[in-house]
């Protein structure tokens, strides 16, 4: 996927500190010397491409509710089916296949610890798997913003 200059600027400048004012996209537009509509169109395109998951908050898990990393070990030829069962739980936000005996790794979030425990029990029942539960005990680095190294900057395509 190629990214025009404005996409690159938005991605690398605004993973944090998005303006809190009545016309935030206008503020970005002025900074980058483009129109407000160009900023909106670019973001909509990124959204449509799936590059932009959303424009909004990343919550501090510990303050916002209850969450944990969890894993199950499933036969390789059954992983898509089990992943689908797990995905169907509303409490799942990340779900990855990984190379290990525990080959399906997911993050479960819930409003309260009780809801979280219930969700984990339900997932165990629905998948007939023993769930490895690995809650965060201490965070040493929680900043998810990430500088993206783009290939040499392309001429802006308008």
């Amino acid at each position: 996927m190629e990214f025009d200059l404005l996409s690159q600027q938005l991605i690398n400048s605004y993973q944090r500190d998005f303006p809190l004012c009545d016309r935030p996209f206008l503020k970005l537009a002025q900074q980058f010397g483009v129109s407000e509509q160009q900023v909106l169109t670019t973001l909509k395109t990124l959204k449509k491409n799936g590059v932009l998951s959303r424009l909004g908050p990343v919550f501090n898990h510990q303050q916002a509710g209850s969450s944990t990393l969890a894993a199950v070990a499933v036969p390789a030829n059954d992983i898509d089916r089990v992943a689908e069962i797990i995905n169907n739980f509303e409490q799942i936000n990340h779900n990855y296949a990984r190379e290990h005996h525990y080959n399906l790794w997911f993050v479960v979030t819930a409003p309260t610890p009780e809801d979280l425990t219930q969700a984990l029990t339900d997932i165990g029942d629905a998948t007939a798997c023993e769930v490895l539960i690995l809650p965060m005990e201490k965070s040493h680095h929680i900043d998810l913003s990430f500088t993206v190294c783009f290939k040499p900057v392309m001429e802006q395509v308008s």
Partner: peptide, 17 residues
């Protein structure tokens, strides 16, 4: 208050290469 850790674009790494 720290309830929000950051506020902005949340991107999918895979789609960015």
């Amino acid at each position: 208050q720290g309830l929000i850790r950051r506020f902005g674009l949340v991107v999918r790494h895979r789609k960015l290469g």
